[in-house]
Design a protein around this nucleic acid. Structure first.
Length: 212
DNA sequence: CACCAGGAATGTA
DNA sequence: TACATTCATGGT
């Protein structure tokens, strides 16, 4: 008989092991949005440099972003990479939040509108929905996929399938989703540090390590 | 020097 | 659906 690890059991284990997380590391909802775009396939360290540049120039509001020229903006976000694409994505996204009453928009409609924006995919949209606007939407990222595979929580693969898997297994709770995702990231980042000589192998498919 | 990071768009089979 | 490629900087 095979023992199945349920999503909620996993959450409880992670929470008891790592304790409360503080996510998303941002002071305002707009800063969450900026970070969500800049962190696309990019190390968070590099995103911090870019956000620091924006802070120094006081560009962390929709108005200031829209005032900046494309060239200036690209220069500021340069450390986060893909600056050509990210600059235009950030500008489109900023236009959207500037021109719409986001708080009054139903979650499903908002998600659809966000994904319609070029450069905003499901993960970026869901990160914004969850961490900037506190909507109960489960975020699936590269860490989550690896952990699912490692623990064999499910054999589903596509983004929406995995999202459905979590959302249908868990109560619809923004704080739970926010904390869960943060814990998954923390776990994936820290697990290799405990293994001597581990060359960040958890990030690879043949890593023998799993939850204790 | 090679490899990869809190993705998305585009193209191919 | 399932992969492959491109975008780009900075850390290891």
């Amino acid at each position: 008989m095979v023992k199945i690890m349920t999503p909620y059991k996993l959450f409880e284990q992670l929470k008891s092991h790592y304790g409360p997380q503080h996510w998303w590391p941002a002071e305002t909802s707009f800063e969450v949005i900026v970070g969500a775009v800049l962190t696309q396939n990019t190390n968070w360290k590099n995103v911090e440099k870019a956000i620091d540049n924006l802070k120094k120039d006081n560009v962390l509001s929709p108005e200031k972003v829209l005032e900046k020229s494309s060239g200036r903006l690209k220069k500021l976000i340069r450390p986060s990479g893909f600056y050509n694409a990210k600059e235009s994505t950030l500008r489109r996204l900023t236009m959207f939040v500037y021109n719409n009453n986001i708080k009054r928009m139903p979650t499903e409609k908002l998600r659809k509108k966000l994904i319609e924006i070029k450069g905003v995919g499901p993960e970026t949209a869901d990160s914004i929905l969850l961490y900037a606007y506190r909507r109960p939407v489960f975020v699936i990222d590269a860490y989550t996929k690896r952990l699912i595979k490692r623990l064999r929580l499910t054999d589903k693969k596509t983004y929406s399938e995995l999202q459905d898997f979590f959302q249908s297994s868990l109560p619809e709770d923004t704080d739970l989703y926010a904390e869960f995702h943060a814990l998954i990231v923390e776990h994936c980042k820290s697990i290799c540090k405990k293994v001597p000589q581990c060359e960040n192998c958890f990030m690879k498919d043949d890593c023998p390590e799993s939850l204790s």
